[in-house]
Simulated assay, not measured.
Amino acid sequence: MKNKLSLGYSPCPNDTFIFHALTMGLVPWAGGLDVTLADVEELNGLAARGALDVVKVSTAAAAGILDEYVLLRAGGAMGYGAGPVLVAGEGRTLQSLDGGRVAIPGERTTANLIFGLCCREAGISVRRMPMVFDEVMPAVEAGIVDAGVVIHEGRFTFGERGLIRVLDLGAWWEAHTGLPIPLGAIAIKRSLGEDTARRMNEAIRQSLLFARNEPEAGRDYIRGHAQELSEAVVQTHIETFVTDYSLDAGEAGVRAVSRLLAEAGCTRKDIFITL
């Protein structure tokens, strides 16, 4: 049995909040962990290559890795009022973007998948330009693109840059499905076996519970990876993207992920570990 595992997650406050205790050994993992922090689209690519044992991925990206990975029920980003937002300069509408250029935070992201569904429903076609998530709003401001799909803290800060919300993609998903928006999930290699998967699921749950019970313990770790964000934005980020679904996806969460993956063309049924 392999005990030392490679673990990857993003430097965003929701992930560092959840994984701090596990990474620092406050929640033990026998054998230890090799930790990689990277942008979500980079993590999606690492998962596609099977480079990490346990990895945070965009839920949409999970559609392409389920032969090698299975999803844990804990550690994900899912909820209501937490989705990506399409932003642009004053006066823009969704229809006005037909034929235009729209920045997206990676081709394999959930944000891109849902944006594509919105465009299909609206009957418009756009040229999607993949970028690292923190390059999207500057590209809109500079006129490099006509609009951009923002994730993470961009949901809270686009107004400070003089941009407007053209469409709340999360609200669109909720209205069409009645389900929470499944933004990201934790995947683990199937080859590690069910017992290791269950133990990792529980370790992540305990790490999150530790963070909730001892919020000051991970403060410096979270702030160290979110240097450009204000204290208020960091806290709002955590409150928005770390929900009870992060402790356990539950029935609604499983249905939400299954629905999203079906939209991505995935027909596989054994998506989640069994507890």
Rank of each mutant, 00 (worst) to 15 (best):
Leu26Met: 13
Glu135His: 10
Gly116Val: 02
Leu97Val: 01
Arg128Glu: 14
Thr23Arg: 15
Asp220Val: 02
Arg199Cys: 09
Ser207Gln: 11
Arg92Tyr: 11
Leu163Arg: 01
Ala63Tyr: 02
Pro215Gln: 05
Ile114Asn: 03
Arg223Leu: 13
Gly123Asn: 04
Ala60Tyr: 04
Val40Thr: 11
Gly45Trp: 05
Met131Tyr: 14
Met24Cys: 14
Ile186Tyr: 15
Val257Lys: 00
Val132Lys: 14
Val102His: 07
Tyr9Ala: 07
Thr236Ile: 07
Ala252Ile: 01
Glu107Asp: 12
Val85Leu: 10
Pro138Tyr: 03
Leu260Ala: 00
Met1Tyr: 14
Leu260Glu: 00
Phe158Thr: 01
Trp29Cys: 06
Val150Leu: 06
Glu174Ala: 13
Ser207Thr: 06
Phe158His: 13
Asn44Phe: 05
Val166Pro: 00
Asp34Ile: 06
Val150Phe: 11
Ala38Leu: 12
Thr267Cys: 13
Val140Arg: 01
Leu229Lys: 09
Gly265Ala: 11
Val54Thr: 04
Gly81Arg: 08
Ala197Asp: 02
His225Phe: 15
Gly116Ser: 10
His176Glu: 07
Ser10Met: 06
Arg268Gly: 00
Ala30Lys: 15
Ala74Pro: 00
Arg49Phe: 07
Thr274Asp: 12
Gln235Glu: 15
Val257Ser: 00
Glu107Asn: 11
Trp29Leu: 12
Gly148Phe: 04
Thr274Lys: 13
Ile65Met: 14
Leu97Tyr: 05
Cys12Ile: 12
Leu7Trp: 05
Val140Pro: 00
Met1Arg: 14
Ser230Tyr: 11
Leu208Cys: 06
Asn14Ala: 15
Arg155Met: 12
Thr240Arg: 15
Ala139Val: 00
Asp270Thr: 04
Leu167Trp: 08
Phe115Trp: 10
Ala61Lys: 07
Asp15Leu: 08
Arg101Phe: 10
His225Gly: 09
Leu117Ile: 10
Pro84Ser: 10
Arg190Asp: 02
Tyr221Glu: 03
Asp67Asn: 14
Glu228Thr: 11
